[in-house]
Design a binder for these strands. Sequence first.
DNA 1: ATTTTGTCTTTTATCGTGAAAAGACATTTT
DNA 2: AAAATGTCTTTTCACGATAAAAGACAAAAT
Lengths: 309, 309
Amino acid sequence: MRRVRRRRDEGLVMAKQNNVYKEAYNRCLGLLAAGASLPSEPELGAALEVSRTTVRSILARMEECGLIEWNKRSKLVLRAPEPADFFPEDETDSLSQIIERSFMRRLLAEGAQAGMQINELELAREIGVGTTSVREFLIRFSRFGLIEKRRNSHWVLKGFTRAFALELTEIREMFELRSVAAFAALDADNPVWAELDAMEVEHRALLAEISTRYPEFSELDERFHRLVHSVSRNRFIVDFYDVIAMIFHYHYQWNKAGQRARNEAALHEHLDYIAALKSRRPEAIEQACRRHLKSARETLLASIPESWQ
Amino acid sequence: MRRVRRRRDEGLVMAKQNNVYKEAYNRCLGLLAAGASLPSEPELGAALEVSRTTVRSILARMEECGLIEWNKRSKLVLRAPEPADFFPEDETDSLSQIIERSFMRRLLAEGAQAGMQINELELAREIGVGTTSVREFLIRFSRFGLIEKRRNSHWVLKGFTRAFALELTEIREMFELRSVAAFAALDADNPVWAELDAMEVEHRALLAEISTRYPEFSELDERFHRLVHSVSRNRFIVDFYDVIAMIFHYHYQWNKAGQRARNEAALHEHLDYIAALKSRRPEAIEQACRRHLKSARETLLASIPESWQ
DNA sequence: ATTTTGTCTTTTATCGTGAAAAGACATTTT
DNA sequence: AAAATGTCTTTTCACGATAAAAGACAAAAT
């Protein structure tokens, strides 16, 4: 079943979605509430992380919508933004996000078997995008070790198996143990200590309201481990966390059973881990690190459906 | 300066180079000498690792050139191939090889500075290929940790610096030590031992004629270390050797000074390393491994021009 | 003298297209 | 019956084209 190509207002086939503009526009609506007028174009560009070209498109539409009065340097706020002013969320996603989500849904929904062929053209048609974007996504995705290319031919799914999880966690443990070893040797005035303190506060705050806020743990978990890995000062270790984060991100999506209890336990482990780091005692650090990684590995292994083993 | 687009014989702009066919054709010429007639199409396809479609194109041209007489199942060899029968080497390279070579030449020749911008369009024009191929190459190349993408914008060169070499070798040493630890625990009937024995013979043969054959060491070195890493049975460790191999491949190209002496020393280290592995004594293995990796690291560090530090 | 704005150019992201290469299936041969 | 061949379909690879987004630079404003 072939999906109809999406078209732009003008009626012609699009070459590129203006999602950067739409996403930045939505974020800029948040800035409107902050003051009576907006800063200069370069300042806005820096704040929104887009070019001045995009900033000017945003300002032009804000004027059209009666949100601001724009005259050269003066950008007076006329009214607060309403829900209707925002672009719909699905128009602000980048193509690669759309493709990634579709691809992962497919992978997890069908219980995709190892050895299965992946067809670029079919994927592109199903998602409703060009083949180039799908190809580029698959090339980027291949570093996660889940797919492999046959020259001049299809991709092969290696499968999210128990073996994959074990290989992944083996590397994770090597890298994290190496990183925490460097942690203890850090100067007392290294800004990482302040970041660690701030994170400890966040952990305690989340733990205090765990019954309602437990879904927020996933994001905090990633930030905590990225902080630890950053201490290694090794780009390969830092980059490898992308693989872990990706797997855990989808892991959290497909395995919600017992999530609250798991997150609460992990929070306690993190607090022990942080205390050990602050003690600067290598043996205590290694022990806390190993304990947490062991339970993280077990959680991951338990989440893999039997049928994929 | 813009290079003229290459064109096909028919005079139209090409969509795809038929380099798979040309490269397989050249290899098939080697098979002609072997016997009085060629095997079946599927067998040829398996031998050359191409589809039957390509095999049939090859046979058609071989008949045209008077190399064989082809009638259904019978493919009689009429004459031995001459140098003129081969396609020129530069027509058999895949686009990604062409792009990689050009890119690396640029990187090494200009003494490319860290922080330098990389422009897809400019690269594509300079090499004489489409932007899509360059984009795909850069995405694949990014996993080597030498370049980084700015969203919706250019790539940034991080530079082949001393820091890069240290980060790379740090991981390499972790991975290789982990792999050799698994080596000692291997069953006596594991085929890896036979491979190791065969490699020891190759090492001794190369060492015996080192004064003339020393350039062959590079390839043997890669095979030896890949064998070691394969024992880890971890895809991330195995795949990481691609990064090392890539760096060392170009390292050998830009630093030929003292190559003979370096290769001879490395051969001796490998032989010690192999002897240690065969002894199955963990301490001996670790010691031999560390010693070799240390000198490999020093060689790599010494090869980095001062100006890139 | 900076910073900001207006205007214009260049590059990136994405598409549709077409030849090369792979693959599927019916027919023929051993 | 199994393998090989002939024929046709589908997919991959690579291109040029075009809107979106970034970026460059001169003119204007503080």
